[in-house]
Design a protein around this nucleic acid. Structure first.
Lengths: 340, 340
DNA sequence: ATGAAAGCGCTAACAG
DNA sequence: CTGTTAGCGCTTTCAT
């Protein structure tokens, strides 16, 4: 058996409660006593058992991380990075992250995460678009809740968001500086607030520069995967205005667009420039390498964890909204507009 | 406060221990009593608190999942899928997965995962190449241990492996059937047993068909990322024999090779065929779509969880070695050899 | 500043 | 088959 607080107490010749005070970093311990206890702890290689602490203090030191199944499989590299960010940050504060997924069509009787039922988390982080019913349930359970990359007007929650609007602004400005004026926007799932904001950022920046967007927006796709990018680009060719650049709603969509361009023997970036959003691995694996708007994914996760812990430890659920700027990354898929 | 076993006992007019017996599915409870208890449980929406169970039973119902940091960032989509496989399977058995990473250059005093120190897991799964020191420590702690996609001759452990050898055999045979005979193998990190086996599978299948591999193997790269694939292919051009097909040690390496081919204006698959290994998302995002050897990643994770639970619940650590076959996936990057 | 004692919610002998 | 009882290892009043 590993040593317990009792062993430590004996070794340091103090009482159990004194050891407990030291473990929990409470102030009212004489320095000398603290030293003694700390020595005993490190001598014995003592580590408090979580289960015991949890039972006594009614706290789990776990944070639940929930995303929808299809988000995690479709946009995997994006959410994996966010998750990793949460894990690293949680470690610093001695929390564990419990990750789980829920189906897109969520049924609260079937799919409620176990850690919610078992009250095995002190707070919850939701990433991406999630069922609003799930938000309701978590709020009713009175658990600190942080949304990442999602927000809904009907629910008041803390959230950590990407500056999508600024992101596509950056993208459009970069293209304009390269002499482009006929710039298209493609990608689906406008129902996701982030995608919608990306579209708005594009539109506003275009209009601010007196550029037309008519017949240059193709967002009727139901999703944001490779095929949607491909289809949207096909539509752009069939029904759209002429263009020399494409802003894609994310990197995956951009790769679909690239496929379409290649099929039509259009050179990137000589004939058409293309820029993505997110900065996932694939940007470096396609040919040419994809310019994009970088999202600080690990940071999003880390900040969410800090907010969650704030909520857990302060007991006052203050609602904070944090917006993280995005950053332009220029690679090989964007260049001067033809004849400019 | 959520209901406790006490509330259930009162409601069902039985004792605490009877409720406990029901919860734990022990057999010695009269059917009628069980029904009564179950009704009370569902009426109250009772869920046993993990911390309490854990403390009383000295069991956590957690399984630790450890991988090296650079594995998780470099070969992220691969390991993410394995991790997801563990999570889904663990759910069925009421376990949680605690994921954490350790640095490649592992120092046991600095980097020992918390859940090991705090004895907060009942078993451990290691994925990919991990420090052997870590294996030592886990075995010394007498925790059931399962390796995924790794094995070391110096340690006796249960493991779940990919049939790498058969995988590259499949790849080579597919190419031979398409008229290729000058087939190269590229990719680095032969120190990883999996990569080494992939090389061996290639070699043996080539030799079995009386094909030469001389000056067709380029594996001096230190890693298996995009650049290594690129560099290995450059070497192949500079120092190698002529070839019409490439077997890459994984998909990421394959994308690097594709970059090199494109730079040299070599068409895939008209001039050179290329096939990867793993079947990660990027296969569908590059142009042309990459033929590959599919690894059942979620399955690897799921089986590892079952093995771990076997070990936890049986208390007898039997060493099992499970090998999962790989599968040929033909897409657009492989075709008939030129002039055949 | 430190110690004594109660108890968190459950499991696990043991009795009956 | 069911109930009684004693902890599991820690936190947390409450005294001192």
């Amino acid at each position: 058996m590993s040593p317990t607080i009792k062993d430590v107490a004996k070794k340091a010749s103090v009482s159990l409660s004194t050891v407990s005070l030291v473990i929990n970093g409470k102030s009212n311990v004489r320095d000398e006593t603290r030293k003694k206890v700390e020595a005993a702890i490190s001598d014995l290689g003592f580590h408090p058992r979580r289960a015991a602490r949890g039972l006594a203090s009614n706290k789990t030191n776990n944070i639940g991380f929930i995303l929808t199944e299809d988000h995690f499989s479709r946009a995997e590299p994006f959410y994996t990075k966010i998750f990793l960010g949460t894990e690293f940050e949680a470690r610093k504060y001695n929390y564990y992250i419990l990750l789980t997924t829920v189906p897109k069509k969520f049924n609260e009787n079937l799919h409620l995460p176990r850690f919610l039922l078992e009250r095995n988390v002190d707070g919850v982080i939701l990433a991406g678009k999630v069922p609003t019913k799930l938000i309701d349930i978590i709020q009713k359970a009175n658990l600190p809740l942080i949304l990442i990359d999602y927000s809904t007007p009907t629910h008041k929650t803390s959230k950590v968001l990407i500056d999508n609007h600024q992101g596509t602004s950056l993208a459009v400005e970069h293209l304009i500086q390269n002499g482009h004026s006929k710039i298209a926007f493609i990608g689906g799932e406008i129902s996701h607030p982030s995608i919608c904001e990306r579209l708005r950022g594009y539109e506003e920046t275009m209009h601010k520069s007196n550029l037309s967007t008519s017949n240059l927006i193709f967002c009727n796709e139901p999703n944001t995967d490779v095929n949607n990018g491909y289809e949207a680009t096909c539509s752009l060719f069939k029904k759209g205005s002429p263009f020399t650049a494409i802003v894609a709603s994310n990197d995956t969509v951009a790769t679909g667009a690239m496929r379409c361009l290649r099929e039509k023997n259009i050179n990137i970036p000589q004939d058409v420039s293309i820029i993505g959003f997110d900065d996932i691995e694939v940007c470096l694996q396609v040919e040419p390498r994809l310019s994009t708007i970088k999202v600080f994914k690990e940071e999003l996760g880390a900040i969410a964890v800090r907010r969650a812990i704030d909520g857990i430890e302060s007991k006052t659920l203050l609602l904070e909204k944090t917006i993280i700027p995005a950053e332009l990354v220029i690679r090989e898929s964007t260049g001067r507009a033809p004849n400019s």
